[in-house]
Computed example of a mutant assay.
Amino acid sequence: MRAALVALMILVALPAAAVQPDEVLDDPVLEARARELSKGLRCLVCRNENIDESNADLARDLRILVRERLKAGDSDEEVIAYLVDRYGEYVLLQPTARGENLILWIAGPAMFLAALAGAGLYLRRRRNGREETAQPLSAEEEARLREILGD
Rank of each mutant, 00 (worst) to 15 (best):
Ala4Ile: 06
Met9Leu: 15
Val12Trp: 12
Ala13Cys: 13
Pro15Arg: 08
Pro21Val: 04
Asp22Asn: 14
Glu23Phe: 03
Glu23Asn: 01
Val24Gln: 06
Val24Trp: 02
Leu25Val: 00
Leu25Asp: 02
Asp26Ser: 14
Glu31Gly: 00
Ala32Asn: 07
Ala34Glu: 04
Ala34His: 04
Gly40Ser: 15
Leu41Phe: 09
Cys43Tyr: 02
Leu44Gln: 05
Val45Met: 05
Cys46Glu: 05
Asn48Leu: 12
Asp52Glu: 15
Glu53His: 13
Ala56Tyr: 02
Ala56Trp: 01
Asp57Ser: 11
Asp57Gln: 12
Ala59His: 05
Arg60Ala: 01
Asp61Trp: 00
Leu62Asp: 01
Arg63His: 00
Ile64Thr: 01
Val66Trp: 04
Leu70Trp: 01
Ala72Glu: 15
Gly73Gln: 12
Asp74Lys: 06
Glu78Ile: 00
Ile80Arg: 02
Leu83Val: 06
Val84Phe: 10
Asp85His: 12
Arg86Leu: 13
Arg86Pro: 03
Tyr87Phe: 12
Gly88Ser: 03
Glu89Met: 08
Glu89Pro: 01
Leu92Trp: 05
Leu93Glu: 10
Pro95Asp: 06
Arg98Trp: 06
Glu100Lys: 13
Glu100Met: 11
Ile103Met: 15
Ile103Asn: 15
Ile103Trp: 09
Trp105Pro: 07
Pro109Ile: 07
Pro109Val: 13
Ala110Asn: 04
Met111Thr: 14
Phe112Leu: 15
Phe112Val: 09
Leu116Lys: 15
Ala117Leu: 09
Gly120Arg: 10
Leu123His: 07
Arg125Met: 09
Arg127Val: 06
Asn128Glu: 10
Asn128Ser: 11
Asn128Met: 10
Thr133Met: 12
Ala134Ser: 10
Gln135Val: 10
Pro136Gly: 06
Pro136Lys: 08
Leu137Asn: 02
Glu140Val: 07
Glu140Tyr: 02
Glu141Phe: 05
Glu141Thr: 03
Arg146Ser: 05
Glu147Leu: 09
Gly150Val: 03
Asp151Trp: 04
